[in-house]
Amino acid sequence: MKKILHLVTIALSIILIGSLASLFQNGMNVSFTFFLTQVVENVKSFITLTQLTYESPAGSGVERSIFPLIFEYYGYSLFILLGGFSLSLISALLLTYLTFLVPPSIRVGIKKAVGILEAIPDILIIVIVQLSFIAFYRETGILLFEVVGAFKRPIVLPLLTFAILPCFFLYRMMLLMFEDELMKPYIELALGKGLTRGRILWKHVTRNCLLSVVNHSKAVILLLLTNLVMLEVIYNLYGMTWFMINHMTGQIVTFGILMIFLPLYLLEALAKRWITHLTGEEVPS
């Protein structure tokens, strides 16, 4: 019950933010009554799922309902979002294991390097990946993956590009967490009991580190979403945020964000419950 209330609060806050941001749709004449009517209208239309329209083709003045078309965009975005996240999580875990195989002196260097790499802007990564694939194609004539976007909706290249930045972020986070975790007394006990290093890392340390990933779910989600916007705009992928950017109205944006928020929130809640079950530690909200 508490969770549902929390969910509704956040959903309402998203609607408020969206309505506030779309106050300027008719120029700079802003009034509070307009804001209130907009909020009420938004809530009404999101509950009844009517009046959600977009202009197509742009500039023609013809309004069409966004259903059922929106689900294609939505599914694709969710796929990239979740697929990219799992890809980055797995690769970050693997990288962390590999890092703990090398001697500590090198590890310090890696840690410093990743701290810097993490800050590379998403746009640079996206642009560089795309340019290098085009260059590779020009040189060899082999098209490794679909590069073009639009209605074809390529899968492999966007997923790979999308996963790079979250991977750095998670990798760095895990490096720090693993080091903290390995200093704790229970590791010594486990080693004393004769458990192998690999087993301790895999079973106990990973479990406790996933806790911290869930702990920082907000930062991770924000990173994923901003990354997604740029990916869809630059690659011209027909996903949810592309739709929002290209059919800019306050209603569509707010509704789109709500649609993305719902599954993410549910997943977050599930992950929290699962982690609590696994480690017995409560995750602060």
Partner: peptide, 19 residues
């Protein structure tokens, strides 16, 4: 809680919408 919506609203989209 009322600020938590900002964690799901990418700043670039929010800024684009208002500007």
């Amino acid at each position: 809680q009322w600020f938590e919506g900002f964690y799901y609203f990418p700043a670039s989209i929010l800024a684009y919408l208002s500007l």
